[in-house]
């Protein structure tokens, strides 16, 4: 019985995957539209779709403003028998010096409101961030059905 369960947990099927360059403002709109399409395809509820699109919008804009542009990799997948959308935002910008501080609401080095990173985390089921100052930032978010 436990063995069977383990086997099931390891099953992750990638249904499809695509990468979108996000270099300028209009790419942020494109990213939102793409996430909407993929999220509705796998049957996420309207509220869940809105959450992941909003999170994607924040992270895509961050990449354009702070990271000098980057890429958004989008994946629809099936894990534990449920479907979800996973997004990976990657840039080769200056990186984030203090991630804990950057995740706090109200913290910003730019002119924004400082809600982007913390907000994107709250709007996702999974959130991972890696950043090396001088080398870039990689953020993964996922929302499950």
């Amino acid at each position: 019985m436990p063995r069977l369960a383990t086997k099931k947990i390891l099953t992750t099927v990638i249904i499809k995957t695509e990468t979108l360059p996000v270099m300028a403002e209009h790419d942020v709109v494109k990213a939102r539209q793409m996430v909407r399409q993929w999220a509705s395809e796998i049957g996420l509820s309207l509220v869940d779709q809105t959450k992941i699109i909003t999170a994607a919008s924040e992270l895509a804009r961050n990449m354009v403003i702070y990271g000098g542009g980057g890429t958004m990799e989008i994946q629809s997948l099936e894990q534990y028998g449920r479907r979800g959308v996973k997004l990976v935002f990657e840039d080769k910008g200056p990186g984030i010096a203090d991630i804990t501080q950057a995740l706090k609401d109200g913290f910003t080095t730019g002119s924004g409101m400082g809600l982007g990173l913390g907000g994107a985390k709250r709007l996702s089921n999974e959130f991972e961030i890696e950043s090396t100052p001088g080398q870039g930032t990689r953020i993964m978010i996922a929302r499950w059905k």
């Binding site: 509220v47 779709q49 809105t50 959450k51 909003t54 809600l115 913390g118 907000g119 709250r122 709007l123």
Partner: peptide, 14 residues
């Protein structure tokens, strides 16, 4: 404002 937008806004922190 659509209900889903309102829910998301508050969760976002706005």
């Amino acid at each position: 404002m659509q209900p889903a937008v309102a829910i998301t806004l508050v969760e976002l922190g706005l």
